[in-house]
Design a protein around this nucleic acid. Structure first.
Lengths: 345, 345
DNA sequence: TCGTTCTTCTAAATCGTTCTAGAAAAACGA
DNA sequence: TCGTTTTTCTAGAACGATTTAGAAGAACGA
């Protein structure tokens, strides 16, 4: 059973390897009777069909697109936003009978040669929320693998499907400014805070491009406000809790907290509730993404069409009839009960 | 830049291809100075490192684990339960620097030779909620790829990480029986109902082994009850809504509805609310899985440690130090407000 | 009947590595 | 100094398919 290859089958049937290969890949290149004889013999010998790696090597097609996720792969799944993206991408991948290769981005062995991005057999790659300048992106570029990012890059020939981060945040900022907020804390994703202790950051220290742009957007429509940047760790519910705890328990409470993702904002909401604070009354809370749970929780947020984003990325990667290489998706401010007027001083 | 291979680099440096290969894979097999010279030249020539497919072919390791998901890949992501499994699996995969290959199971081209499961370059596979007897499982077995399933199979040498479906459901059944319920509708996943119109099924028609076992478990502790099986489509919120609508709008309302997944049960809850029915008072509702949203909704359900399940599957597949090949995970009945006494006739 | 076009099949090269066995040189111990 | 071990590197054979160019025979039209 082991060691049965195309050759074995060819010899058994008494034809050339090419013909056996054709039996699998180009059925119209040989007579039906022979094809069936080959397939029958293959079954008999326990031949499992052309070896995937060998086929990939010779034909140059891997039949899979890679997905690069923020930092820890496991984290990605805790954010419904990321999952929504994947769902959209999977939909298109399915249509084109292509697999999705989720690659861990463990920064540890990026330096060495043996990391997943280097070794992955993929035809193309989707880059989801990976900070610009990440070594994995260089590897990808170096390998000559076509990629589509969810962030607008600097290179004009880079493909992306993104939102206008600045404008989206500016909308939210305008809403908050109109409500009278002038003291705001922004909760961001940050690897260094992942250790446990929340950290306060400057705009330059914010690693992710999209986070940076969103903060700039807030600044744009809230020029008079004091904006502080705090992180409780990676993008996750628990980080939102920690970040908010840090802020709420300090002497210097803001009147509004903006989570740069809904999961973080919902974490902050939890921290507020534990302290008996009502979102929208005692303190305003807003998020980004509009994941399903945001609606249930009454969270004011900026909606982005995440599943469509995934679909669009998939189309650019897989559908040859898609010519558009850079796509700006619409966003929409969704006002719910978690935002309200700033308390008078 | 194109067509730069190991050989090119070898020629440029003036060494043999083996040595260049060693520079990447076995750094201790050559002097540091030479290694650095090779790496530098490689960088200069724009060599992206050993080709993934070629390496996979020669070394016999693909560096990826396949994941087989229920039917449509895109559906999988709409169920937090499935996502939880993936998160656990991803955690372990990350630890072993292995990628996860999500394969679409589109039944259409399973018959032909060119489907994803056949073509996937993987070392092992995780099988998540795939109905027994699915052609993809045969392909996997035929290819000789070690696999771990989330369902207990019939073969004694098959690896699995599962729960005692019968016992878990029996627990829930006992709870319902004690509350006086004798007329129950079970909502199941069914491909045929996906068209739109809900269908009523017999136990034999239920495709998925785990669903079947759960129903048997209910029967076990509810021997006097009338159990009807209804499906509103695939495993998703919307299917739960549709299935429940069908049941609630009929002349023959049960006193309890059991969703075989929480997403379906939550869909049913939505349908109840639209009709002004309060879960736990007007009609009892229960689910399976205990996804995060179940707690928020007050849904009675059977908890299973899904993330641990994913981790365990990952360990069996990747960690050589794991010897256990078959693992039974604990379940726990979580009673919340959605279940209450059956109304007196 | 003869040249032409299909159909059906094959030989041999190739894809880009890694691996096994072993050679050449350097280091070592007594 | 001479055998022995260690270090460093190489030749050449796999790995298992696909592809290109073309041969052999059948079918065809005139």
């Amino acid at each position: 059973m082991a060691g049965v290859t195309l050759k074995t089958v060819a010899k058994a049937v008494g034809v050339s390897p090419s013909t056996v290969s054709n039996a699998y890949n180009k059925p119209d290149q040989l007579s039906t009777t022979l094809r069936e004889r080959i397939l029958a013999t293959a079954r008999e010998l326990g031949y499992a069909g052309p070896d995937a790696s060998a086929r990939a090597l010779r034909s140059g097609k891997a039949g899979a697109v890679g997905v690069l996720f923020t930092d820890k792969l496991a984290y990605a799944f805790s954010d419904p936003y990321a999952v929504g993206f994947l769902a959209g991408l999977a939909e298109v991948a399915e249509e084109f009978a292509t697999s999705l290769l989720l690659m861990p981005l463990s920064s540890t062995d990026i330096a060495g040669g043996s990391n997943a991005v280097q070794q992955a057999a993929i035809d193309a790659a989707a880059i989801f929320c990976v900070p610009g300048g990440h070594p994995a992106l260089d590897i990808l570029a170096n390998r000559g693998i076509p990629a589509v990012s969810t962030d607008r890059g600097d290179h004009p020939d880079l493909s992306w499907v993104a939102i206008d981060e600045v404008e989206a945040a500016a909308q939210l900022g305008e809403h908050l400014a109109r409500l009278g907020h002038r003291d705001v804390v922004v909760l961001v994703d940050n690897a260094e805070a992942a250790g446990g202790r929340p950290v306060e950051l400057t705009l330059d220290e914010v690693g992710y491009t999209d986070c940076e742009l969103r903060i700039r957007g807030l600044q744009k429509t809230m020029p008079d406000a004091r904006l502080r940047i705090v992180s409780g760790g990676h993008n996750a519910f628990a980080s939102g809790v920690r970040g908010a705890e840090y802020v709420l328990d300090s002497q210097d409470r803001p009147t509004a907290i903006v989570g740069l993702s809904d999961v973080q904002a919902l974490g902050a909401m939890e921290a507020m509730k534990v302290r008996g604070l009502t979102p929208g009354r005692d303190l305003t809370l807003a998020g980004f993404d509009d994941i399903p749970a945001a609606e249930a929780a009454g969270l004011t947020t900026v909606r982005q069409p995440i599943k469509d984003k995934g679909r669009a990325v998939g189309r650019i990667l897989l559908d040859p009839s898609t010519t558009e290489r850079q796509l700006l998706m619409p966003t929409q401010l969704i006002v719910r009960s978690s935002s309200g007027p700033a308390p008078k001083r």
